[in-house]
Write a protein that binds this DNA or RNA. Structure first.
Lengths: 252, 252
DNA sequence: CGTTTGCTTGAGGCTGTTCAATACCGGTGG
DNA sequence: CCACCGGTATTGAACAGCCTCAAGCAAACG
């Protein structure tokens, strides 16, 4: 929960080629300096800490610099839906102006570093550097495409395909390429509960689906490490639209 | 399928107060004239016609001037997911640049009138009138919020709540206010199949859920007309986040 | 080490699907 | 005006997928 006013700033951590963040279009030194000047001190969060809570007033927009964050919507009955697992470079917390309070919560899954940027300062930057508008527009169009795919998955695909879809998405986003590499153990800080909240399944059923994937030699996940065994069969199970694979690979 | 190069243009039909379209920020006569100049001739579509098909190249962005359009993603096995029912004023067909082909299809549910705007011309307009960026950003942030809610609904809510949620959404969007008016028969061109494709249910189960809503005196839909009987109970069943109601009412 | 948290497995039940048969409505052509 | 027709709605019965509940286990953490 502490504050880290010094490095790592936006410059180094949010601009890896495979996870372009907000600063990608701010190439000029002045523009980047302006973005650096606008941001608040970076927040270092321990695992489980909330970046913001559902219902809280929207004050800042955030850039995830390091670690994993989950965006989730909780329901009154205790159920909750994970909307997206965020990786470094992600920008989140944007909202239409009518919306004064967060409809979603954001929670760190690992130790995480986030940069808050006051919403009004971001608006000022947008007007000073129009390239920032292009970037934000691109990010949002991408988010809409991702959300549409998740809607289709939850509405139409059976449990096994939902889990396969999520694993494939993570592998492609983490690896930055499609097809993803086989045989590599990738760190993935997800519990069965989190996977269930993202796929609309119970943790018990997630266990059963993961067992089938393991027994069929498709992929295995254990102790926080995900290993792809058979990329072709995972893709066949997940059956993602071709358009998405490029987006996953390109945008963390 | 014909072309209608004359009225109704963007001016009259897309700017009703309750369904602000692209031109809302283009108040100045020059700006509006520029938008009018950029658009192609309006397309008049018969019911069932495709505005664009899934997999087709992305060439234009569209503004819905009149009628209903469904955005849907089809799966190889014949199932499909309706992502959103569009009402007049909606802008659709935006996509991140990596995406050369539509991941979704758009189909007219009624006779409909749409204005295509070439994507590159829209980009040019954006740079000439920065207010347009604000508007597009707002539209996309709203779309992300809507999509997030649909994800939660499909992932976590049971069948009755899903149907109630959709009916409430339509009533609030059509009426432009919350709570929606009781006792008014609103034209709604949806078949049980379409409702099922939007809620992830079979048409048969949609029938059963609608029967329960009718028997419980909550709402009834028949012969293309939706009548709200008990707003409070519909809201209780649908249980939408407070943030959404304002967005539904404000944005058609 | 003890405690806690998450994982695993099984049995039984509920929700929603599938399949099939019938009724309905709107449009068409005789 | 009426018979016909295609698409849609309705209903029921059997089935399947996923959930609930409960117990036992493994792993992480103080």
């Amino acid at each position: 929960m502490g504050c880290d006013p010094s490095p790592p700033g936006l410059r180094c951590a949010t601009c890896p080629a495979r996870a372009p963040g907000l600063c990608a279009p701010m190439r000029g030194p002045e523009a980047l300096a302006a973005l650096e000047a606008a941001r608040r001190p970076a927040l270092a969060l321990p695992p489980g800490a909330a970046v913001f809570r559902q219902g809280e007033a929207c004050r800042d927009v955030f850039i995830l610099v390091a670690g994993w964050v989950a965006l989730a919507q909780a329901l009154p009955d205790g159920r909750r839906q994970v909307l997206r697992f965020l990786l470094p470079g992600a920008i989140f917390g944007l909202h239409p102006e009518e919306q004064a309070n967060h409809a979603l919560g954001a929670e760190a899954l690992t130790a995480a570093l986030v940069c808050p940027i006051p919403a009004e300062r971001l608006a000022a930057l947008r007007h000073a550097w129009p390239a920032l508008d292009d970037r934000l527009l691109w990010c949002l169009e991408r988010d809409v495409a991702f959300a549409a795919e998740q809607v289709t998955t939850l509405g139409q695909r059976p449990a096994l395909a939902r889990v396969a879809h999520l694993l494939l998405e993570l592998l492609v986003r983490l690896g930055g390429r499609h097809p993803p590499a086989e045989g590599v153990a990738v760190p993935v800080p997800l519990t069965h509960r989190l996977i269930g909240d993202a796929t609309g399944l119970t943790p018990e059923h997630v266990t059963r689906m993961l067992r089938r994937l393991r027994q069929d030699g498709v992929a295995r996940i254990s102790r926080g490490r995900l290993t792809l065994l058979d990329a072709a069969r995972l893709v066949a199970l997940a059956d993602p639209p071709a358009e998405l694979l490029a987006l996953w690979a390109a945008s963390g």
